[in-house]
Design a protein around this nucleic acid. Structure first.
Lengths: 351, 351
DNA sequence: ATTAGCACTCGTTATTGTTGAGTGCTAACA
DNA sequence: TGTTAGCACTCAACAATAACGAGTGCTAAT
């Protein structure tokens, strides 16, 4: 069967109305609402076809129709094509230039959640391929060294290193010089065996310290990759959508938001299969979702880029009948503002 | 009217049964359940008295009685008195000695939540009266200095400091010496005007840097005091208690858990009026709660102390009919384990 | 190809009656 | 005087029933 122009119009009308009301939409409604001059009976026939083709579903006999995942998918794809639509006027976000990136992200995610009325999440930027910019060991205690790492993008990592107190100040100085001269400018995964053994050799008697430092570096990176911070807001917005708020579903969803592991998984997953390029905005509908817990939802994700190659992910999670149009354009908007705010003026971030 | 022995027995029986079932309890139930050999009619009379005295409430005519806040309070106070009861055998918590305090806390709060079936929260330890142990400025970029602070208890703070590039290495060295010699060993709020002006004088041309450093210190402390991290778990456990899970209440409670501000307020409040000493365990019931959002709940809080004078708060939040007995003893147990784990062996923590 | 008409389906809502747990009161009892 | 049995009464909860109405599919007329 053919998906001709009229069917498309009707399908769109159905989805649009359903997005607004959240209730199954019947033939009569469409007949009145759309600008096609057709009677409900005709619409009914078309709807019957659309159902056969799998774009819409009848929850039970003698109820209206609701869009299927396939239907949503079609709708969203259409939407993406007409991307030139005038930029939706979202309220100015007021990203002040705050010193701490963390605060910016927290505020941002709140704005997103309240603006859209869905749940929002944002992952702190990760320094995947990032380079070491500065390494320093300092004596803090009799028996402890403080290791400070600064990565490109001014991400700072600290770690305490217990040592015997036999190290002299000169030793520490030498180690610092050694570490910096060898590792500086290297990306984390460029630190290979040859570099390591070369360093150990030069460290002589203190090679255990070098080893410890390297371990800490690896550890810090790993911890960050598996356990990166995620900020969320508006998880309780799901109560605004009855189809999500019945006991069990709501509970599972919310605990996914509380224990962030699931979200981390989601983001990792999204990033791994990210090649749709374009604006970098992706939409997952229902079963397309990488994480099963959320198969009754839709997610719109976008990757943001901060000046120094730092990348993170923003996501909006809502019911399948979310206002994709608004969400996508809100996200675009936010990305632009983030871009404008961070990719121009100079500043430093704190840990 | 007098609260004689029999009334107490009956009151306790009522509360105990209500804690288990969550449903209003009637006279006949008590008559059978308790070991008093009394008919339901007699119990009814006593219950009528208890109601008049304000210890129990009738949700509606011809329903059983449920405890009032006053009733709960009485029950809990009794409980606290009989504290010598055998330590409830809680499953071994398995606090492994993990390097990162953060992870320990996250795990701990999860254990608490799953063990009790209520919502649990834990605040990261704060360094209220803590002393500066180490200060260091390092050049990281042409135009940026890295400020590293270490406080007693090995809490590390970083901040980036933009400066003109006119500083020589020698300048930085001098500043470091100045900062350390003046501030080292001082508690944060011991840094007073005289010390400040003395430092500025000695810094000469670089006094703007000194000022900036001091600002950052103040800022770091303030940010921590107003915005200290809180870890939560099991917020969705409230769905297990029907009296809390109806739409609006649940939503408000959960969003309090998501946006942590409310919880911070709660903890701050609890700490400020903490003088009940003893085991340091406090119970807030219903309207006694400092935070209005949670007036349908009860909270049990406890303060934990880590070796170096670091203090934080643990809280369990549940319905008014929570199993106070179990919760209190679980908390005691956890405190003991925390104590055993941290107040003995030496180790360092990371930021 | 479109539409009007009609019988039919089925979730939703309101109505009604029934049940049973629980109460308060009174009168009898030890 | 404290305890108990008995009884009429209340009221939430439940189930059964009916009425409603939005919506469909089909057929026949346009």
């Amino acid at each position: 069967m053919e998906l001709d122009g009229r069917k498309v119009t009707i399908l769109k009308a159905i989805i649009k109305t359903y997005l607004e009301t959240g209730e199954p939409v019947g033939s009569r409604t469409i007949s009145k609402y759309s600008d096609l001059k057709l009677s409900s009976a005709t619409i009914r026939n078309e709807m019957s076809d659309l159902e056969e083709m799998g774009y819409i579903i009848q929850p039970h006999t003698s109820a209206g129709r609701i869009p299927s995942d396939k239907g949503y998918r079609f709708y969203v794809d259409q939407l993406m094509e007409e991307k030139d639509q005038e930029m939706n006027q979202v309220q100015e976000l007021m990203i002040q230039r705050v010193d701490r990136l963390e605060l910016v992200l927290k505020r941002l995610v709140q704005v997103l959640a309240t603006n859209t009325n869905y749940a929002a999440l944002i992952s702190a930027p990760q320094y995947h391929q990032n380079k070491l910019k500065f390494i320093q060991l300092s004596r803090v205690d009799e028996d402890k060294l403080l290791l400070v790492l600064v990565l490109e993008g001014n991400i700072i990592k600290n770690s305490m290193l217990p040592v015997g107190s036999r190290l002299s100040e000169q030793d520490i100085l030498n180690l610092n010089i050694l570490l910096n001269s060898t590792l500086n400018g290297l990306a984390i995964d460029q630190i290979n065996l040859s570099a390591i053994s070369r360093m150990k050799e030069q460290a002589g008697i203190n090679q255990d310290i070098v080893e410890a430092v390297l371990n800490r570096i690896a550890e810090a990176v790993r911890a960050d990759a598996e356990n990166f911070p995620i900020y969320t807001s508006g998880a309780t917005n799901i109560f605004k959508y009855p189809e999500l708020s019945d006991g069990d579903k709501a509970s599972k969803l919310l605990s996914a938001f509380e224990e962030k592991e699931m979200l981390q998984e989601l983001i990792t997953d999204v990033n791994s299969q990210e090649e749709s390029a374009g604006t970098g905005i992706q939409v997952y509908i229902g079963d397309e979702m990488p994480v099963q817990t959320m198969k009754d939802c839709s997610v719109v994700t976008a990757n943001y880029v901060l000046g120094d190659g730092l990348r993170g992910t923003i996501g909006i999670i809502g019911p399948k009948r979310m206002d994709y149009d608004k969400v996508v354009s809100t996200l675009r908007n936010v990305m632009n503002q983030l871009d404008a705010a961070f990719n121009k003026p100079p500043d430093g971030g704190g840990s």
